[in-house]
């Protein structure tokens, strides 16, 4: 640290008077509002995604699993079945894409967000940030917005683009673009649902294991429930992969799928609301 002389020379009072231009000082405005600190926190969350190997690691893994495996399966099916039409090849690829895409988004959400709020609470960084004039709502919403942005990009968007291009190349017929876009939007909604669920649970649990187990458990339970209480699948995104697949291959979504889309959107909004409410009262 500085010696007394240096400290006195560089002291805040002196520094403010002598070093800071008056017009600059006057130009600094206090930040406020109900979402105070949101932009700053978004910048921090973006930095966490882009500064480390996270983006590259997630991008590579999900590109391989969601896009390349789907295309490879479609290609092999096409080679093995000489009678397959370009549409059949596209359908085979679409089934894999929507199944792997929906599972990948849940795994990616858990992997990336399980420590997001819980980790910050345990480390003390949440207490540090919230000892500043940052709103708790901004803290949670910044995580939601930034994680959604990057998870959507690496688990679904980039793989979808690569999948679409490669499928067009191997099947010689592009999948119907608008329907494919619609199927993609359904998967994106599913990702938002699981992200909102994960953030809500991170305001409830104190351990990452409980959060990860609950989110995975919810997904696995959905597949099992679909056999015994199929009507329940209309309330949650468990069969979103089927909705996406039918939309792309048949141009329509089954009734349970049509109901599950607005229902899932409502759940996501409710989870976000509850996460904000719980975190507002959380002790740090």
């Amino acid at each position: 640290m500085k010696s007394r002389e240096t400290l006195e020379t560089n002291g805040r009072k002196t520094a403010h008077k002598d070093m800071e231009k008056p017009e600059e000082q006057a130009a600094l405005k206090p930040v406020g509002g109900p979402l105070s600190g949101f932009r700053n926190l978004v910048g921090k969350e973006n930095g966490e995604w882009t500064a480390g190997p996270s983006l590259l690691a997630h991008g590579t893994i999900w590109m391989l699993i969601v896009a390349l495996i789907s295309v490879a399966v479609a290609f092999i099916r096409g080679e093995m079945e000489p009678g397959y039409s370009p549409k059949d090849i596209n359908d085979a690829g679409a089934l894999m894409f929507f199944v792997l895409g929906s599972v990948a988004s849940v795994i990616a959400v858990v992997a990336k967000t399980q420590g997001s709020i819980i980790g910050e609470k345990q480390l003390g960084t949440a207490a540090w940030v919230l000892s500043k004039p940052a709103s708790r709502r901004a803290f949670v919403l910044a995580k939601l917005v930034v994680h959604f942005r990057w998870l959507l990009t690496v688990t679904l968007l980039l793989p979808a683009v690569v999948f679409y291009v490669l499928m067009t190349a191997i099947a010689t017929l592009p999948p119907p673009p608008l329907l494919f876009l619609g199927g993609f939007a359904i998967l994106a909604l599913g990702l938002l649902f699981y992200l909102a669920l994960s953030l809500l649970l991170s305001t409830v649990f104190e351990s990452r294991g409980s959060l990860a187990g609950s989110v995975f458990g919810f997904m696995v339970a959905g597949f099992m429930i679909a056999n015994y209480a199929p009507w329940l699948t209309a309330a949650f995104p468990w069969l979103f992969f089927q909705s996406g697949y039918y939309l792309v291959t048949q141009g329509q979504i089954p009734v349970y799928g049509l109901i599950s889309i607005p229902a899932t959107a409502l759940w996501a909004v409710l989870f976000i609301f509850l996460a904000l409410r719980r975190f507002e009262r959380a002790e740090l």
């Binding site: 600059e24 600094l28 206090p30 930040v31 600190g37 700053n40 500043k132």
Partner: peptide, 10 residues
């Protein structure tokens, strides 16, 4: 930036 908005230089 939690406290102030304004010119980056300041």
């Amino acid at each position: 930036r939690f406290f102030y908005s304004g010119p980056e230089s300041a």
